[in-house]
Amino acid sequence: MVPVKITRFKGEAGMQFDLSGLKAIVTGSTAGIGFATARGLAVAGAEVVINGRKQDACEKAAAALRKVAPKAKIEAFVGDLSTSEGCDALVSAHPACDILVNNVGIFGPKDFFETPDDIWEQYFHINVMSGVRLSRAYLKGMENKKWGRVIFISSESAQNIPQDMIHYGFSKTAQLAVSRGLAKRMAGTGVTVNSVLPGPTMSEGVKTMLEQEAEKTGKSVDEISHGFVMQNRPSSLIQRFATVEEVANMVLYVASRESSATSGAALRVEGGILETIF
Results as ranks from 00 to 15, higher is better:
Val26Ala: 05
Ala57Asn: 14
Asp118Arg: 13
Gly40Tyr: 08
Phe113Ile: 13
Gly14Pro: 07
Thr262Tyr: 10
Ser259His: 01
Phe170His: 14
Gly40Glu: 09
Ala44Trp: 04
Asn232Gln: 11
Val2Met: 13
Val78Ala: 09
Gly32Pro: 09
Thr27Cys: 08
Ser236Gln: 00
Gln16Ser: 13
Phe17His: 12
Ala57Gly: 12
Gly264Asp: 05
Gly52Tyr: 00
Lys146Ala: 14
Leu267Gln: 08
Thr201Trp: 00
Ala265Lys: 11
Ser135Pro: 06
Ala24Ser: 06
Gly190Lys: 08
Val196His: 01
Ala38Gly: 10
Leu237Ala: 11
Ile25Gln: 06
Val244Pro: 11
Cys97Thr: 09
Glu75Asp: 15
Gly52Cys: 05
Ser171Phe: 08
Ile224Cys: 06
Ser171Arg: 08
Val104Gly: 04
Ser29Gly: 05
Lys110Ala: 14
Ile153Lys: 06
Ala24Val: 01
Gln16Phe: 07
Leu182Cys: 07
Pro70Lys: 01
Ile153Gly: 05
Phe113Ala: 13
Thr189Glu: 09
Leu176Met: 12
Phe278Cys: 11
Ala61Pro: 01
Phe241Val: 01
Phe170Pro: 01
Asp88Tyr: 05
Ala214Phe: 02
Gln159Leu: 15
Ile151Phe: 02
Ser260Arg: 14
Phe241Ile: 00
Ala72His: 05
Ile25Leu: 09
Leu19Ser: 00
Asn127Pro: 01
Lys219Glu: 11
Ile106Gln: 12
Pro162Tyr: 00
Leu90His: 02
Met202Asp: 04
His94Val: 15
Met15Thr: 15
Ile106Ala: 13
Thr27Ala: 03
Ser220Ile: 02
Glu47Asn: 03
Met165Tyr: 07
Ile106Gly: 12
Thr243Ile: 01
Arg185Thr: 13
Asp80Ala: 02
Ala89Arg: 12
Val269Leu: 09
Lys73Trp: 02
Asp164Lys: 12
Arg149Glu: 02
Phe77Gln: 02
Ser84Arg: 14
His125Glu: 15
Val269Gln: 10
Ala177Arg: 09
Val49Leu: 07
Val68His: 03
Ala261Gly: 00
Lys110Trp: 09
Val49Phe: 08
Glu275His: 12
Thr217Cys: 03
Gly21Cys: 04
Glu75Arg: 15
Ile161Arg: 07
Ile273His: 00
Ile224Leu: 05
Gly181Pro: 01
Val221Asn: 05
Asn144Ser: 15
Ala214Pro: 06
Asn160His: 14
Pro95Cys: 09
Val132Trp: 07
Gly271Tyr: 00
Gly205Pro: 03
Glu215Arg: 14
Lys219Pro: 03
Ala242Val: 03
Val104Cys: 06
Ser225Asn: 06
Arg136Cys: 04
Arg268Glu: 11
Gln122Pro: 04
Asp56Asn: 13
Val26Asp: 03
Glu12Asp: 12
Glu223Ala: 04
Asn103Phe: 04
Glu59Asn: 14
Leu176Asp: 04
Val68Pro: 02
Pro162Gln: 06
Lys146Cys: 08
Ile161Phe: 14
Thr83Pro: 01
Lys10Arg: 14
Asp18His: 04
Pro198Ser: 11
Ser256Thr: 00
Glu215Ile: 07
Lys172Tyr: 10
Phe113Pro: 00
Gly32Arg: 07
Ala31Cys: 12
Gly32Glu: 08
Phe124Pro: 00
Arg268Lys: 13
